[in-house]
Design a binder for these strands. Structure first.
Lengths: 379, 379
DNA sequence: CTGAAAGCGCTTACAG
DNA sequence: CTGAAAGCGCTTACAG
């Protein structure tokens, strides 16, 4: 009868090959249906064991589980989120960019991430607090904790209040991510930020490199609003100081100064004092993003040949580095920190992936010669 | 009759609110069905106008189009890729990491991206060529062009041959992305890489900063295999030289040297010549990632107090920077370049987004004090 | 030129 | 304890 079959041996071989390819391809994506068939149950039952939903007879449960294991089933997330109606809310609590311009950047990253995971039914609820007002932090945090979000990203800049927030999160079994500030010994899902002490250490190295004189007076400037948190600044100072105590300790005489920035007059007064001193500074290390205030003072008073090192790519700082008044900016990819914080929660809540807990950003060194390629944030 | 309705006015109000909320939510996601209903056609017809598939009466086409416009329809990509069977193939052609260790890094980024877009039916076809063998580039490129991929990422390190490849891509209307090397005036979808000249310029600035003596001999070292492309190296040298001709031109006397690295003996010989010269070097700028070969020479010959600047975070370079033998490494996030190249094609082919054409990576300055936070690539 | 229907791999009531 | 069915928003033949 085979003469009726319109195919040669070669053709038969081809068909076999195609079949094998087909098998291989389908073998790659094993679905809920496949394991249902294998286990002689309905897909409903498979779903029940997959999600511990409803009771399933112990024996069938184990049966199904072993087949899942054997076939190496992984869910199709597209189908999952298409079919599912569960919504996720991620709450965010960070300092108001109005009160601290730096925070525009993490916020931009957070929003970029939000746009990307919207299609998976994720919604972001963004709240801000006044950087110089601990009460506003507490208030907003409580509001969020009462709203029962699926995840929580916040900057724990106020230590004591943050501990209370953390405790509540733990009670509620709410996943939380620290951004910018790290608090030890917590059950936080992840942290995204910089190693502050090390960034200060690096700044000191750059200062040392830039100052040729053998003995120099170097000032550590900490620009502060009254009642704003000082945590970061102190860590950065610590790192800076430790460099000069380890290396080149005979090169520098260090001075540390808090500078009130709540009014221009107060700022001028502090800086006047430094420059009127008999210990003429050859370098200033400004321990946060307000370095542009100091640069502006330099410009106004025509101060030259003093090395100025500060933090972060604020627009004002960019201008002063291009003018050559600021020599170095230490940066930390804040947009990326925001972006990754959101994705840590996405990975945890939706993909059920494990996420890295401690995530230190690179400590970027920005100078006039490379600033161009750091200006624009793009993910 | 309303006494039978078991609800108070308040309850009615609640129901109304819920309805409104529902309406608002559904208003957010307008689907193919909604516009079909509005246009009094079937979803099949809507699909036809959306994809220019099959002929549609002009009038209904315009009708549907205007409704799509009005309702601001955007397709649900999850559903799209779930239902669709179209596969995308992205071909990649880069130097073999065996012949040039640097390329492990772009490759890692490419693979990471591939894993992420696999669920959207994207497959990557990765081919490599021998960095010192132009023919192997041509051969592999032709192979790829014959395989009819959906997109093509390649490193156009050989200029003339690359022009031919580019021409073919244009003919085939194949979208292509340049990685690492940029060729001007092409229809490439995007470029990901560094501004080489500027990186050399920055290196010169760091060299100048690190050298205290007033007049110094500085060597520009270009480690090369015979017949390997030299394009990058020359650009970096150009930038380096231009710094010293613009600034501090009285500080440095520059010397440029090609160094054959095809054998250890050849390398030693060249470096011996430098150090035996009467123009004792105070700084060496090694214009590529093979700086570790020079560092190894330094170590072997106990050369100290010579500033050594090079490129890229290869494992060997990391070790020499930690030992203090290399002072600076200029880096460029090669993993990210690979990652983003793939996503450029994904955005173009699948999401139909417009993509930025010229994408320069940051020029990262790596020192002993910040290397820790650049070591691990993570997206 | 156009519509009705099946299906992508899941979730979610509902019925037994 | 378990199965059958509808549906998420699309695509893709198929039938007219």
């Amino acid at each position: 009868m085979f003469i009726y079959l319109p195919c040669t041996l070669t053709e038969i071989h081809c068909v076999q090959q195609i079949r094998q390819t087909l098998k291989k391809e389908t073998a790659l994506k094993i679905g809920i249906k496949d394991i249902a068939k294998q286990a002689n149950v309905s897909i409903g039952t498979v779903d029940r064991v997959l999600h511990n939903r409803g009771d399933v007879a112990k024996s069938t449960r184990e049966q199904v589980l072993s087949i899942i294991e054997e076939l190496g089933y992984t869910p199709n997330l597209l189908a999952k989120s298409l079919a599912s109606k569960t919504k996720y809310t991620i709450s965010v609590l960070i300092p108001d960019p109005e009160s601290n311009a730096y925070w525009e950047k993490p916020l931009a990253g957070i929003k970029a991430a939000a746009a990307e995971i919207k299609k998976f039914n994720f919604e972001l609820q963004i709240a801000t607090f006044d950087y110089s007002n601990e009460n506003s932090f507490i208030e907003k945090a409580n509001q969020i904790l009462g709203s029962n979000p699926s995840g929580f990203i916040f900057a724990p800049v106020f230590y004591e209040s943050s501990l209370k927030v953390i405790e509540k999160c733990d009670q509620l079994e709410l996943s939380y991510v620290f951004i910018d500030v790290f608090i030890e010994n917590c059950e936080n899902l992840a942290y995204f930020g910089q190693n502050s002490a090390q960034s200060g250490y690096l700044a000191a190295r750059l200062m040392s490199l830039s100052i040729s004189q053998v003995i120099s007076h170097i000032y550590i400037v900490k620009p502060l609003n009254p009642s704003a948190p000082v945590y970061h600044l102190n860590l950065r100072e610590k790192g800076f100081v430790s460099y000069f105590s380890e290396e080149n300790s005979d090169q520098a005489i260090l001075h540390s100064m808090d500078v009130d920035i709540s009014s221009p007059a107060a700022l001028d007064e502090s800086l006047d004092a430094i420059f009127a001193s008999s210990n003429k500074p050859l370098g200033l290390f400004v321990a946060n993003s307000r370095v542009h205030l100091v640069a502006s003072y330099f410009e106004k008073n025509k101060i030259k040949n003093v090395i100025l090192i500060g933090y972060d790519l604020l627009q004002e700082n960019i201008e002063y580095i291009e003018k050559g008044i600021i020599q170095f900016l230490i940066c930390q990819k804040p947009e990326e920190q925001g972006y990754k914080s959101v994705f840590a929660l996405f990975n945890h809540l939706f993909l059920k992936h494990t996420v890295e807990k401690l995530n230190f950003s690179p400590i970027d060194i920005i100078m006039k010669e490379n600033i161009e390629y750091y200006k624009n944030f793009k993910i």
